[in-house]
Write a protein that binds this DNA or RNA. Structure first.
Lengths: 304, 304
DNA sequence: AGAGCTATTTTGTCTAGGACAAACAAAAAG
DNA sequence: CTTTTTGTTTGTCCTAGACAAAATAGCTCT
């Protein structure tokens, strides 16, 4: 087999590190050390790409590159996520059951996983199923990926199967028209959709009129869509992986574009530690979103 | 309302034009002409961002930037896509029905669209529904977006609703284990999933054992997943929007990583004009994929 | 004419290093 | 012990030049 090599664009694709950062690290830290082709362009060997991916994963957990790049291979020992873990409030019995679901994914047993989830859904009912099964399970998958016990493709499989399940459930809900019209989407560079689906299922269950637009909408398009659909609320989801510092700016910009009578909501693990914004409602949990829905209805009821 | 302005990263996000390209155009063509903030960084006014988005859309249709940037506003007249249009082989009666479906999306009538699609599915059966409704409809949506009669968010709505429908249908198919195990995914920078879902529904209908991994898998992960799932076939989908010139390189690279006994298939409108590759099977239509499935089974039957 | 080949223009990506501000960690002050 | 100030780390943006791949134009040959 030919030795695999990557140009800088391919490394950016596969690692998520921008070209600027790759060149900067080379200059500052002396790593990576790509060879050059006949045009003087960087050529990265596969093992360095692998190492960069590992470093990126650890960085997403809160480690700093300066520390990581020097260490040889005992980084594997520094698995410990440096981000403050939310306190594990799941009762032990529940946790065991969730681990069993994770194990099914880890064994690549799609059919078994789907069956087990259907069973739980029937037992818990939609609301509890979303809050007590899907939400913590997604959290656990994220953790498993961060600490290396899940491969990327295993996370993808989990996501894909769970998306299907949620969409299927949503399709069976009656399309009631009594609630506010909620437009659900995410900003560019935020491809995670599970949070949106969870929110949609909860809101739809309460009779809200949801318009799912998928992920990664340019901000201008979001405001256009909100007007075209005569939405009452624009709801965004930010995953924990989304760069936190960009969130306030994005929300402000979107708030400026939107007509004042359209509410802007933002939820997901990504907004947990974001400062409160003028004209934007932030939700740490799905319960908060439901409370906000009730509040919205109450405000409208008294106003009219 | 405050005048909206964008920094270069925001413009990249919203237009899809890289920072390098934005700076290059400014240097070469004198457009765009961003102002500078107190740090000397570019600040783009909203109307130039709008114009850049228009230019990008026309470029995706095959126009060249040099011609577009000079023209003032009569570009609107040059709507004509310069890409060779595939001959419209849809019989007129069918075409009218498809246009009715498009109109439902254009009116943002989600419920009506879903109902109409369910009806067609029941009438045509899954195979014909996918081949004669979803495939041409997706094509038409792409065209409508290219010529500006569809907004981005309308395309998103179509995609989201159609994804749901297909996934729902796939979920109802029996999980037969007789066929080859097919791993379905797409490469990084290829977020379009409808092609994959269409392929999955057809293959699953024929009894193949599909493993859907969603989109945008790094190549190294694809090969890892293929081994972990003991896949017989890795199937990739490339949309027409994917940069054609990158495809051969990607396929070659992946082919090198994969064990020789795992087939590599690639389909979708994106591969229609890609040259044949050693060790890779390219499909222009869904029928080709079904034929390849039959061929795979025949080869295995005689071999064993 | 039309099919193929070669030259020229167009266009995007890569390279280099410098500058600076935002995020973070450490030290000093209350 | 908490808060503020100072220093370090780190990412993004900047200019400007070089070059290769793609698209077009021009040519030749059938």
């Amino acid at each position: 087999m030919n030795t695999l090599s990557f140009n800088i664009a391919a490394v950016e694709r596969d690692t998520g590190l921008s070209k600027d950062v790759l060149r900067m690290w080379e200059r500052r830290y002396g790593f990576p050390t790509p060879q050059r082709d006949c045009n003087g362009e960087r050529v990265y060997p596969a093992d360095q790409v692998e190492r960069l991916r590992l470093i990126k994963r650890l960085m997403d957990q809160g480690h700093r590159p300066g520390k990581l790049i020097g260490a040889p291979a005992d980084e594997l020992a520094s698995l410990a996520p440096r981000r403050p873990r939310p306190v594990e409030s799941t009762p032990p019995a529940e946790a065991v059951e969730l681990d069993e679901l994770l194990a099914l994914i880890k064994q690549h047993n799609s059919a078994g996983y789907q069956q087990a989830m259907q069973q739980r859904l029937a037992r818990q009912g939609l609301q509890h199923f979303v809050q007590d099964t899907i939400a913590p399970l997604t959290e656990k998958v994220g953790e498993a990926w961060e600490n290396g016990s899940f491969e990327v493709f295993e996370e993808h499989l989990y996501t894909e199967l769970t998306k299907r399940l949620l969409r299927q459930v949503i399709a069976t809900l009656p399309t009631a028209g009594r609630g506010p019209r909620v437009l659900l989407t995410s900003v560019p560079d935020e491809p995670h959709v599970l949070g949106l689906l969870m929110a949609e299922s909860m809101l739809a269950l309460e009779g809200a009129d949801c318009v799912p637009l998928g992920t990664q909408m340019p901000l201008l398009e979001i405001s256009r869509a909100a007007e075209a659909h005569r939405a009452d609320i624009v709801a965004l989801s930010f995953s924990v992986a989304f760069p936190q510092r960009q969130i306030p700016g994005l929300l402000q910009q979107l708030r400026q574009m939107l007509p004042a009578n359209i509410d802007l909501w933002a939820g997901g693990r990504g907004v947990a530690r974001v400062a409160r914004q003028e004209g934007v409602q932030l939700f740490a949990t799905l319960d908060d979103a439901l409370a906000a829905l009730a509040a919205w209805r109450a405000a409208r009821a008294t106003a009219s």
